[in-house]
Amino acid sequence: MPSPGAGSAGQVEGAANSGPILRVDGVTMRFKVAGNRQLTAVDNVVLEVHAGESVALVGESGSGKSTLARCLVSLLEPTAGVVSLDGRQVSGLRGAARRRVYQDIQLVFQDTNGSLNPRWTVRSILDEPLRAYSDRDPGQRDTRVRELMRQVELDESLLTRRPAELSGGQRQRVGLARALAVEPKVLVLDEPTASLDLSTRGQVLDLIGRIQRETGLACVLISHDLPVVRHIADRVFVMYLGTIVESGPTEEVFRRPVHPYTRALVAAAPVARYRAPRDDYRLRGEIPSAMDLPSGCLLAGRCPSAIPSCFEVRPHLVHIGAIGSGRMAACPVSAAAIASAPVPSAPAR
Protein backbone atom coordinates (compact mmCIF):
# COMPACT_ATOMS: atom_id res chain seq x y z
CA MET A 1 0.00 0.00 0.00
CA PRO A 2 1.21 3.53 -0.72
CA SER A 3 2.25 5.64 2.23
CA PRO A 4 -0.40 7.72 3.98
CA GLY A 5 -0.97 11.40 3.24
CA ALA A 6 2.51 12.83 3.36
CA GLY A 7 1.90 15.12 6.31
CA SER A 8 3.26 18.62 6.06
CA ALA A 9 5.68 18.14 3.17
CA GLY A 10 3.24 17.95 0.23
CA GLN A 11 1.39 21.08 1.12
CA VAL A 12 4.36 23.42 1.14
CA GLU A 13 5.76 22.17 -2.17
CA GLY A 14 2.44 22.69 -3.97
CA ALA A 15 2.31 26.26 -2.77
CA ALA A 16 5.83 27.15 -3.84
CA ASN A 17 5.49 28.63 -7.31
CA SER A 18 1.81 29.27 -7.93
CA GLY A 19 -1.28 30.46 -6.13
CA PRO A 20 -3.88 28.03 -4.89
CA ILE A 21 -5.91 26.22 -7.52
CA LEU A 22 -9.03 26.55 -5.35
CA ARG A 23 -9.81 29.42 -2.99
CA VAL A 24 -12.81 29.56 -0.73
CA ASP A 25 -13.21 32.95 0.87
CA GLY A 26 -15.85 33.44 3.55
CA VAL A 27 -18.40 31.15 1.97
CA THR A 28 -21.73 31.09 3.79
CA MET A 29 -24.81 29.14 2.77
CA ARG A 30 -28.19 29.75 4.35
CA PHE A 31 -31.40 27.95 3.52
CA LYS A 32 -34.92 29.24 4.06
CA VAL A 33 -36.96 26.71 5.98
CA ALA A 34 -40.59 26.43 7.06
CA GLY A 35 -41.98 29.22 9.22
CA ASN A 36 -39.90 31.87 7.45
CA ARG A 37 -36.83 30.79 9.39
CA GLN A 38 -33.25 30.39 8.27
CA LEU A 39 -30.79 27.62 8.66
CA THR A 40 -27.07 28.23 8.35
CA ALA A 41 -25.55 25.12 6.80
CA VAL A 42 -22.14 26.65 6.04
CA ASP A 43 -20.82 29.66 7.93
CA ASN A 44 -17.92 31.83 6.72
CA VAL A 45 -15.62 29.04 5.55
CA VAL A 46 -12.13 29.95 4.37
CA LEU A 47 -9.78 27.45 2.76
CA GLU A 48 -7.24 27.03 -0.04
CA VAL A 49 -6.21 24.00 -2.02
CA HIS A 50 -3.05 23.82 -4.12
CA ALA A 51 -2.45 21.88 -7.35
CA GLY A 52 -1.79 18.21 -6.70
CA GLU A 53 -2.80 18.54 -3.06
CA SER A 54 -5.47 16.56 -1.24
CA VAL A 55 -7.46 18.08 1.54
CA ALA A 56 -10.21 16.46 3.54
CA LEU A 57 -13.34 17.78 5.20
CA VAL A 58 -14.39 15.73 8.21
CA GLY A 59 -17.25 16.07 10.67
CA GLU A 60 -20.47 14.40 11.76
CA SER A 61 -23.56 14.15 9.55
CA GLY A 62 -25.24 17.49 9.31
CA SER A 63 -22.05 19.48 9.76
CA GLY A 64 -22.37 21.01 6.29
CA LYS A 65 -19.80 19.09 4.28
CA SER A 66 -22.02 18.23 1.31
CA THR A 67 -23.50 21.71 1.21
CA LEU A 68 -19.99 23.20 1.04
CA ALA A 69 -19.11 20.71 -1.71
CA ARG A 70 -22.13 21.88 -3.71
CA CYS A 71 -21.02 25.48 -3.31
CA LEU A 72 -17.54 24.57 -4.56
CA VAL A 73 -18.87 23.12 -7.82
CA SER A 74 -21.53 25.85 -8.31
CA LEU A 75 -24.48 23.55 -7.77
CA LEU A 76 -25.40 26.06 -5.08
CA GLU A 77 -24.85 29.80 -5.22
CA PRO A 78 -23.44 30.76 -1.80
CA THR A 79 -25.41 33.31 0.23
CA ALA A 80 -22.13 35.11 0.86
CA GLY A 81 -18.46 34.68 0.05
CA VAL A 82 -16.49 33.77 -3.04
CA VAL A 83 -15.16 30.59 -4.61
CA SER A 84 -12.26 31.06 -7.05
CA LEU A 85 -10.64 28.52 -9.33
CA ASP A 86 -7.15 29.20 -10.59
CA GLY A 87 -7.56 32.86 -9.71
CA ARG A 88 -10.93 33.26 -11.49
CA GLN A 89 -14.03 33.93 -9.46
CA VAL A 90 -16.59 31.18 -9.96
CA SER A 91 -19.61 32.53 -8.16
CA GLY A 92 -22.10 34.41 -10.27
CA LEU A 93 -20.73 33.30 -13.65
CA ARG A 94 -23.10 32.60 -16.53
CA GLY A 95 -22.98 30.89 -19.93
CA ALA A 96 -19.70 29.92 -21.56
CA ALA A 97 -17.58 31.25 -18.70
CA ARG A 98 -19.48 29.12 -16.23
CA ARG A 99 -19.14 26.05 -18.42
CA ARG A 100 -15.40 26.51 -18.67
CA VAL A 101 -15.11 26.72 -14.91
CA TYR A 102 -17.46 23.79 -14.47
CA GLN A 103 -15.02 21.63 -16.43
CA ASP A 104 -12.23 22.51 -14.06
CA ILE A 105 -13.94 21.30 -10.91
CA GLN A 106 -15.97 18.11 -10.74
CA LEU A 107 -17.98 16.48 -7.99
CA VAL A 108 -18.23 12.76 -7.39
CA PHE A 109 -21.49 12.30 -5.55
CA GLN A 110 -22.11 10.68 -2.18
CA ASP A 111 -24.79 8.42 -3.61
CA THR A 112 -23.82 6.92 -6.96
CA ASN A 113 -27.17 5.17 -7.02
CA GLY A 114 -29.00 8.44 -7.38
CA SER A 115 -26.47 10.32 -9.47
CA LEU A 116 -26.07 7.95 -12.43
CA ASN A 117 -28.99 7.87 -14.85
CA PRO A 118 -30.45 4.37 -14.40
CA ARG A 119 -31.66 4.15 -17.99
CA TRP A 120 -28.30 4.93 -19.57
CA THR A 121 -25.51 2.51 -20.31
CA VAL A 122 -22.06 3.12 -18.88
CA ARG A 123 -20.99 4.20 -22.37
CA SER A 124 -23.68 6.92 -22.58
CA ILE A 125 -22.91 8.07 -19.04
CA LEU A 126 -19.25 8.62 -19.96
CA ASP A 127 -19.97 9.99 -23.43
CA GLU A 128 -22.41 12.65 -22.26
CA PRO A 129 -19.94 15.08 -20.63
CA LEU A 130 -17.59 14.65 -23.64
CA ARG A 131 -20.36 15.67 -26.01
CA ALA A 132 -21.39 18.59 -23.85
CA TYR A 133 -17.96 19.95 -22.97
CA SER A 134 -15.53 18.99 -25.74
CA ASP A 135 -15.48 19.22 -29.53
CA ARG A 136 -14.28 15.66 -30.04
CA ASP A 137 -15.84 13.73 -32.94
CA PRO A 138 -17.54 10.38 -32.22
CA GLY A 139 -14.35 8.42 -32.91
CA GLN A 140 -12.29 10.56 -30.53
CA ARG A 141 -15.00 10.34 -27.90
CA ASP A 142 -14.98 6.55 -28.15
CA THR A 143 -11.20 6.55 -27.67
CA ARG A 144 -11.55 8.80 -24.63
CA VAL A 145 -14.31 6.61 -23.12
CA ARG A 146 -12.07 3.53 -23.40
CA GLU A 147 -9.17 5.46 -21.92
CA LEU A 148 -11.36 6.46 -18.95
CA MET A 149 -12.41 2.84 -18.38
CA ARG A 150 -8.74 1.85 -18.30
CA GLN A 151 -7.96 4.68 -15.94
CA VAL A 152 -10.54 3.52 -13.38
CA GLU A 153 -9.65 -0.13 -14.00
CA LEU A 154 -12.99 -1.25 -15.40
CA ASP A 155 -13.30 -3.82 -18.15
CA GLU A 156 -14.64 -2.48 -21.47
CA SER A 157 -17.27 -5.22 -21.46
CA LEU A 158 -19.09 -3.18 -18.79
CA LEU A 159 -19.72 -0.34 -21.26
CA THR A 160 -23.05 -1.85 -22.30
CA ARG A 161 -24.31 -2.33 -18.72
CA ARG A 162 -26.69 -0.04 -16.83
CA PRO A 163 -25.95 1.18 -13.29
CA ALA A 164 -28.26 -1.39 -11.66
CA GLU A 165 -26.20 -4.17 -13.24
CA LEU A 166 -23.00 -3.03 -11.53
CA SER A 167 -21.66 -3.66 -8.04
CA GLY A 168 -21.27 -0.75 -5.63
CA GLY A 169 -17.54 -0.55 -6.28
CA GLN A 170 -18.01 -0.60 -10.04
CA ARG A 171 -20.67 2.13 -9.84
CA GLN A 172 -18.35 4.25 -7.75
CA ARG A 173 -15.66 3.86 -10.44
CA VAL A 174 -18.10 4.89 -13.18
CA GLY A 175 -18.94 8.01 -11.15
CA LEU A 176 -15.23 8.71 -10.88
CA ALA A 177 -14.65 8.15 -14.62
CA ARG A 178 -17.50 10.50 -15.49
CA ALA A 179 -15.99 13.21 -13.29
CA LEU A 180 -12.56 12.68 -14.88
CA ALA A 181 -13.93 12.77 -18.44
CA VAL A 182 -13.58 16.54 -18.85
CA GLU A 183 -10.07 16.58 -17.32
CA PRO A 184 -10.81 18.71 -14.26
CA LYS A 185 -8.12 20.34 -12.15
CA VAL A 186 -9.99 19.76 -8.90
CA LEU A 187 -12.02 16.74 -7.92
CA VAL A 188 -14.48 16.95 -5.03
CA LEU A 189 -15.31 13.51 -3.63
CA ASP A 190 -18.31 13.31 -1.30
CA GLU A 191 -18.09 10.17 0.85
CA PRO A 192 -16.61 8.17 -2.04
CA THR A 193 -16.31 5.00 0.01
CA ALA A 194 -19.26 5.17 2.38
CA SER A 195 -21.29 2.51 0.60
CA LEU A 196 -18.36 0.19 -0.11
CA ASP A 197 -17.13 -2.67 2.01
CA LEU A 198 -13.62 -2.81 3.36
CA SER A 199 -11.77 -4.55 0.56
CA THR A 200 -13.45 -2.55 -2.22
CA ARG A 201 -12.84 0.62 -0.27
CA GLY A 202 -9.09 0.02 -0.26
CA GLN A 203 -9.08 -0.53 -4.02
CA VAL A 204 -11.04 2.65 -4.80
CA LEU A 205 -8.74 4.68 -2.56
CA ASP A 206 -5.61 3.31 -4.19
CA LEU A 207 -7.13 4.16 -7.54
CA ILE A 208 -7.83 7.75 -6.53
CA GLY A 209 -4.27 8.07 -5.23
CA ARG A 210 -2.81 6.71 -8.46
CA ILE A 211 -4.90 8.99 -10.70
CA GLN A 212 -3.87 11.93 -8.60
CA ARG A 213 -0.18 11.10 -8.92
CA GLU A 214 -0.55 10.65 -12.68
CA THR A 215 -2.58 13.78 -13.40
CA GLY A 216 -1.58 16.27 -10.70
CA LEU A 217 -5.23 16.64 -9.82
CA ALA A 218 -6.16 18.39 -6.56
CA CYS A 219 -8.73 16.61 -4.39
CA VAL A 220 -11.23 17.72 -1.81
CA LEU A 221 -12.29 14.59 0.03
CA ILE A 222 -15.35 14.51 2.26
CA SER A 223 -15.51 11.59 4.62
CA HIS A 224 -16.20 10.66 8.18
CA ASP A 225 -13.95 7.67 7.86
CA LEU A 226 -10.76 8.80 9.57
CA PRO A 227 -8.50 5.98 8.27
CA VAL A 228 -9.57 6.96 4.74
CA VAL A 229 -8.77 10.61 5.41
CA ARG A 230 -5.40 9.69 6.87
CA HIS A 231 -4.66 7.61 3.80
CA ILE A 232 -5.44 10.30 1.25
CA ALA A 233 -5.32 13.83 2.64
CA ASP A 234 -2.29 16.09 3.11
CA ARG A 235 -4.34 18.52 5.16
CA VAL A 236 -7.60 18.19 7.01
CA PHE A 237 -10.38 20.66 7.84
CA VAL A 238 -12.64 19.66 10.71
CA MET A 239 -16.19 20.99 10.36
CA TYR A 240 -18.89 21.32 12.99
CA LEU A 241 -22.29 22.96 12.43
CA GLY A 242 -21.11 24.78 9.33
CA THR A 243 -17.85 26.18 10.68
CA ILE A 244 -14.23 25.02 10.47
CA VAL A 245 -13.11 24.32 14.04
CA GLU A 246 -9.62 22.97 13.30
CA SER A 247 -7.25 22.58 10.36
CA GLY A 248 -3.71 21.49 9.69
CA PRO A 249 -1.51 18.69 8.29
CA THR A 250 -3.55 15.48 8.60
CA GLU A 251 -1.09 13.34 10.54
CA GLU A 252 -0.32 16.10 13.01
CA VAL A 253 -3.96 16.97 13.57
CA PHE A 254 -4.91 13.35 14.19
CA ARG A 255 -1.87 12.63 16.35
CA ARG A 256 -2.31 15.72 18.46
CA PRO A 257 -5.77 17.25 18.04
CA VAL A 258 -6.18 20.70 19.60
CA HIS A 259 -9.92 21.27 19.38
CA PRO A 260 -12.12 19.15 21.68
CA TYR A 261 -14.32 18.24 18.71
CA THR A 262 -11.37 16.84 16.76
CA ARG A 263 -10.17 14.99 19.82
CA ALA A 264 -13.61 13.40 20.27
CA LEU A 265 -13.77 12.37 16.59
CA VAL A 266 -10.36 10.71 16.82
CA ALA A 267 -11.23 9.05 20.13
CA ALA A 268 -14.48 7.66 18.70
CA ALA A 269 -12.76 5.73 15.90
CA PRO A 270 -10.86 2.85 17.49
CA VAL A 271 -7.96 1.45 15.46
CA ALA A 272 -8.16 -2.15 14.27
CA ARG A 273 -5.90 -3.71 16.85
CA TYR A 274 -6.49 -5.84 19.92
CA ARG A 275 -7.40 -3.60 22.85
CA ALA A 276 -5.56 -0.60 21.44
CA PRO A 277 -5.13 2.04 24.15
CA ARG A 278 -8.15 4.26 24.00
CA ASP A 279 -9.11 7.80 24.78
CA ASP A 280 -12.45 8.04 26.60
CA TYR A 281 -13.01 11.65 25.59
CA ARG A 282 -16.68 11.76 24.55
CA LEU A 283 -19.07 14.49 23.48
CA ARG A 284 -22.42 14.68 25.24
CA GLY A 285 -25.50 13.93 23.14
CA GLU A 286 -25.92 14.49 19.44
CA ILE A 287 -25.33 17.26 16.92
CA PRO A 288 -28.06 19.91 17.41
CA SER A 289 -30.21 21.36 14.64
CA ALA A 290 -28.48 23.97 12.49
CA MET A 291 -31.59 26.11 12.98
CA ASP A 292 -31.09 27.18 16.60
CA LEU A 293 -27.41 27.85 16.95
CA PRO A 294 -26.26 28.94 20.41
CA SER A 295 -24.54 32.31 20.75
CA GLY A 296 -21.34 31.02 22.37
CA CYS A 297 -19.09 28.23 21.16
CA LEU A 298 -21.18 25.92 18.96
CA LEU A 299 -19.82 22.89 20.82
CA ALA A 300 -20.35 24.24 24.34
CA GLY A 301 -23.42 22.10 25.10
CA ARG A 302 -21.57 18.89 24.25
CA CYS A 303 -17.97 19.72 25.13
CA PRO A 304 -16.33 17.95 28.09
CA SER A 305 -13.79 20.78 28.40
CA ALA A 306 -16.27 23.67 28.41
CA ILE A 307 -15.93 26.46 30.98
CA PRO A 308 -18.61 29.13 31.67
CA SER A 309 -17.19 31.68 29.22
CA CYS A 310 -17.60 29.15 26.39
CA PHE A 311 -21.36 29.73 26.51
CA GLU A 312 -20.98 33.47 25.89
CA VAL A 313 -18.39 34.10 23.19
CA ARG A 314 -18.10 32.41 19.78
CA PRO A 315 -14.39 31.53 19.30
CA HIS A 316 -12.56 32.30 16.03
CA LEU A 317 -10.20 30.07 14.13
CA VAL A 318 -6.68 31.20 15.09
CA HIS A 319 -3.14 29.97 14.44
CA ILE A 320 -1.78 27.63 17.10
CA GLY A 321 1.90 28.27 16.43
CA ALA A 322 3.07 26.50 19.58
CA ILE A 323 2.56 23.07 18.06
CA GLY A 324 3.83 23.61 14.54
CA SER A 325 3.11 25.65 11.44
CA GLY A 326 -0.14 25.45 9.57
CA ARG A 327 -2.18 24.47 12.61
CA MET A 328 -5.37 26.39 13.36
CA ALA A 329 -8.12 25.84 15.89
CA ALA A 330 -11.15 27.65 17.26
CA CYS A 331 -10.91 26.92 20.97
CA PRO A 332 -9.32 29.47 23.31
CA VAL A 333 -9.48 27.01 26.20
CA SER A 334 -7.31 24.42 24.46
CA ALA A 335 -5.07 27.09 22.97
CA ALA A 336 -4.39 28.48 26.44
CA ALA A 337 -3.63 25.01 27.78
CA ILE A 338 -1.08 24.47 25.02
CA ALA A 339 0.49 27.88 25.52
CA SER A 340 0.96 27.26 29.25
CA ALA A 341 2.45 23.82 28.68
CA PRO A 342 4.37 24.04 25.42
CA VAL A 343 5.36 20.73 23.93
CA PRO A 344 8.43 20.45 21.70
CA SER A 345 7.29 20.85 18.10
CA ALA A 346 7.87 18.34 15.30
CA PRO A 347 7.34 15.02 17.09
CA ALA A 348 9.64 12.28 15.85
CA ARG A 349 8.07 10.02 13.21
Binding site: M1, P4, G5, L198, S199, R201, G202, L205, P227, V228, R230, H231, E251, F254, V271, A272, R273, Y274, R275
Partner: peptide
Protein backbone atom coordinates in the same frame (compact mmCIF):
# COMPACT_ATOMS: atom_id res chain seq x y z
CA UNK B 1 -9.83 -15.52 20.04
CA UNK B 2 -9.68 -11.83 19.23
CA UNK B 3 -6.12 -11.39 20.41
CA UNK B 4 -4.87 -14.22 18.18
CA UNK B 5 -6.87 -12.95 15.25
CA UNK B 6 -5.32 -9.49 15.42
CA UNK B 7 -1.84 -10.56 16.40
CA UNK B 8 -1.45 -13.64 14.21
CA UNK B 9 -4.22 -13.89 11.62
CA UNK B 10 -4.05 -17.26 9.87
CA UNK B 11 -6.25 -16.91 6.80
CA UNK B 12 -5.08 -14.62 3.95
CA UNK B 13 -8.57 -13.10 3.79
CA UNK B 14 -8.38 -12.11 7.46
CA UNK B 15 -5.03 -10.47 6.79
CA UNK B 16 -6.57 -8.63 3.86
CA UNK B 17 -9.44 -7.34 6.04
CA UNK B 18 -7.02 -6.18 8.70
CA UNK B 19 -4.86 -4.40 6.13
CA UNK B 20 -7.91 -2.69 4.64
CA UNK B 21 -9.02 -1.49 8.09
CA UNK B 22 -5.69 0.07 8.82
CA UNK B 23 -5.37 1.63 5.34
CA UNK B 24 -2.75 4.19 6.28
CA UNK B 25 -0.94 1.65 8.41
CA UNK B 26 -0.59 4.28 11.12
Amino acid sequence: DARDLFESPRHPYTRQLLAASELGGH
